[in-house]
Design a protein around this nucleic acid. Structure first.
Lengths: 339, 339
DNA sequence: AATGTTAGGGAAAACGTTTTCCCAAGATGG
DNA sequence: CCATCTTGGGAAAACGTTTTCCCTAACATT
C-alpha cells in the first residue's frame, strides 16, 4: 500500500500521477473516472476527484481508444460545406455530440465517391464511434462499412445502397406535395421546376412529391418547364436552368427549386438579364439560415437545422429505437407583393 | 522464421495478418509503411506492399498515437461556422491537410472563451498534431497551451494573449487603408463605418486602417457616423447600427462594414425601411463566397480563402520559416450605378 | 462457529502500433 | 585471413488506458 505522499519519482502515464496523489492504484482512478460505482468508497472517490482536479488530468484518448477499440470521434461526412444549410446542420450536430462527450470530425466529400471512400477508410482507422453521412453518395466502401459494426447514420439523403439504415431528415415527398398545394392555393399557374440530379434521394422525393402534388390537383406540370441541367454545383444548375428557360422566352409565375442554392443561381440569371423581365416568385428547399438576411424574396421549405443534432445523437444512442427520424418542415413565405 | 504460409490462426492486431501474409515480422511491416528505407530489401518491400493492398490494411490510429504521442488530427477551432467565409477557410484547410495525410477536426467556439477552453483541453487529450485557431478569443487555457509543445496557428485574428505566434491572414490594416483610398477615389464623401467589437485584432486593425486612410487624405471620418453597437453576432450589429444611423436621419453615400455579415444586417435595415431611403453603397470585408450570387450590390475586400489551407499547412510544416504569412487581399467592386 | 457474500481495491494483461536493441551473414578493408 | 562495416530483419519494450482476475476484510446467514 503506497503511502499517499511517496512520490519519489513519477511513473509514465499521467494517470499514474493522479493515482499517486490520491494514494490509490491506477485501476481505481480509472474506475472513478468511468463511474464504476460499486468499486470505490465515497472517501476514495473524493480523494481521486480532488487529485484529478488538482492535476487538471484528462485521460489520453489514444490509450482509451486502444483498449476499448473505439474512440470519442464521430465522423460527419458532408457533401458540401459551402451550402450554409449543411453547415448549420453540422454545427447543430457538433453541439449535441459535444454534450455527450463526443467530438465531431467534419469532412467535406464534395459529393465525390472517391473522397467519401477515402474518408470512410480513414474514419474506420480512427475507430470512429459512428459515421454520419450528411448527404451520402453511392460508393464501394459504403457497402463494406455497413457490414462492419460502426453505426452509420444517414442525414437528409437516404442510404444510396438501398440497405435499410438509420435516417434523419424531413419527409421530402410530403414537402414536395406541400409546395405544390401552396402554389395552387396562391393562384400561381405557370410553374417551372428546377432540380438537381435525382441520384440523391432527397431530390428524387422532392421532385416526385411536387409532380404528384400538382397532378393530384389536376394541374399537372408542363414538361418543358421542368429543367435539370447536368452541372457541378447547385448554384450553376440554377443559373443554367434559368438561362435555358429564358432562352425559350418563357416567363413563369413561380419557379420551384429543389434547393435554395439552385434558387440563388436562378435569381442571378434574371438579375443579370437587363431586358426587364421581372423576377418570378421563387421557392426553394432548406431555407438557408442566410435567407432571412440575404434572400428576402425567396420562399422556402424550412428544415429544422437545430433539431438535427439531437436527432442524430438519439439515433446514435438508441440504434434500434429511432431508425427513422422524420423532422417537421414548414413553408416560409417571402416576397409576396402585398401581405 | 515463419514460413509464408503458416497462418494457422491469426494473432491480434491487424498488422499481424499483414506480417503473416508477407512472411515477415510486424516490425518490418511497420518499417515498410513508414518508409524506413534502409531496413528492407526491395523484394521484401514488394511482398509487404502486396499484403497490405490485398488485406486493405490501414494502421489503427490509436496504436500509432499511443506510441508516437501524437495523432494525425489537426484541430481547427472556428469562432463562427455560420460565417460562410470561415466555412470556406475551413474547407480549404481541410483539403490541404488531407493531402498531407492529416485529418481536420472542426469545432465551433461561438467566440466563447469557455467553449474554446473546453475544445483546447479536448484536443490536447486527443494529442492533436496542431491547433489552428480561426478567430481566437482570449482564454485561460490558451496561455497554458502555448507553453506546451503543440503548435498553435492563428488565422485571421492574431494571438490575443499577445505572445508571438504563427499567423496566417491578410494585412488588415492595409486593407482598411485601401478601402478608405478607394472611397475617396470614388468621390464618396459622407461615409459611415459600422464595426464589430475591437477585441478582435482583425477588426481593430481594419478600423484603424480605415480611420488612418481617411485622415491621411484630409477627409477624417465624422465620429457620429462610426457605430459599433454591442450585440451578439455580426448580422445584428449591422442591423442595429443601421437603425441607429437612420434614426439620426443620416443618409450616407457609403457604409463601410468590417465584415460582410455586418453589411448583410445593415442592408436589411434599409430594405425594411419602406420610407424610400435608397440603400447607400456598401463595402464589407471577407467577400463571402455567396456574395457573387446573393449580394450583387455589396463591394468587399476579398480574402483568398483557397490560399489559407496551403498557408496553414506550410506554417505547420515549417514552424520557423513562416511565422507570419500575409496573404494578398483585393477590392471587389459591385453595385456601381454605371460602369 | 463455519460458511457464504459483498465491498473495496490492487496487480497485471491486453489493446495495436513504433522503435530500440539485437543478431546473422555478407561485404569490405587491411 | 582477420577485423570491421553494412544490410536485412526479428524480439521485445514501450506507449496510457481499461478491465479481468484476484485478494482481503467485514458482514450476514445458517
Amino acid at each position: 500500500m503506497p503511502a499517499s505522499g511517496d512520490s519519489k519519482f513519477s511513473v509514465s502515464g499521467s494517470i499514474n500521477a493522479v493515482a499517486q496523489r490520491a494514494g490509490v492504484s491506477i485501476a481505481t482512478v480509472s474506475r472513478v473516472m468511468n463511474g464504476v460505482s460499486n468499486k470505490a468508497s465515497p472517501a476514495t472517490v473524493a480523494r481521486v476527484r480532488e487529485a484529478i482536479a488538482a492535476l487538471d488530468y484528462r485521460p489520453t484518448s489514444a490509450g482509451r481508444a486502444l483498449r476499448q477499440k473505439t474512440s470519442h470521434l464521430v465522423a460527419v461526412l458532408a457533401a458540401n460545406l459551402a451550402n450554409p444549410a449543411m453547415a448549420a446542420i453540422a454545427a447543430s450536430a457538433e453541439t449535441a455530440l459535444r454534450q455527450k462527450g463526443l467530438v465531431m470530425v467534419l469532412c467535406d466529400t464534395h459529393d465525390r465517391p472517391d473522397l467519401q471512400d477515402e474518408y470512410l477508410r480513414e474514419m474506420l482507422a480512427q475507430q470512429a464511434r459512428a459515421i454520419v453521412l450528411l448527404g451520402a453518395v453511392d460508393s464501394p466502401m459504403l457497402l463494406k462499412v455497413q457490414e462492419g459494426s460502426t453505426p452509420l447514420i444517414f442525414v437528409n439523403r437516404r442510404n444510396p445502397t438501398g440497405a435499410e439504415s438509420a435516417f434523419v431528415g424531413i419527409d421530402n415527398r410530403r414537402a414536395g406535395e406541400d409546395v405544390a398545394h401552396w402554389a395552387i392555393a396562391q393562384g400561381l399557374r405557370r410553374i417551372a421546376l428546377f432540380h438537381a440530379p435525382t441520384s440523391s434521394s432527397a431530390t428524387r422525393e422532392r421532385v416526385s412529391g411536387i409532380i404528384a402534388g400538382f397532378a393530384d390537383a389536376g394541374a399537372a406540370l408542363s414538361k418543358d418547364l421542368v429543367l435539370s441541367p447536368v452541372s457541378g454545383d447547385h448554384l450553376t444548375i440554377g443559373l443554367e436552368a434559368a438561362r435555358q428557360l429564358l432562352a425559350k422566352g418563357e416567363q413563369p409565375d413561380l419557379v420551384i427549386c429543389t434547393s435554395d442554392l439552385i434558387a440563388f443561381g436562378a435569381a442571378r440569371a434574371w438579375r443579370e438579364l437587363r431586358s426587364g423581365n421581372p423576377m418570378p416568385r421563387m421557392i426553394g428547399f432548406d431555407d438557408s439560415p442566410m435567407n432571412e438576411w440575404l434572400a428576402p424574396e425567396l420562399s422556402s421549405i424550412r428544415i429544422p437545422y437545430a433539431g438535427f443534432g439531437e436527432a442524430i445523437v438519439a439515433a446514435l444512442m438508441e440504434p434500434k429505437a429511432s431508425l427513422l427520424t422524420i423532422l417537421p418542415h414548414k413553408i416560409i413565405e417571402r416576397g409576396q407583393k402585398s401581405a
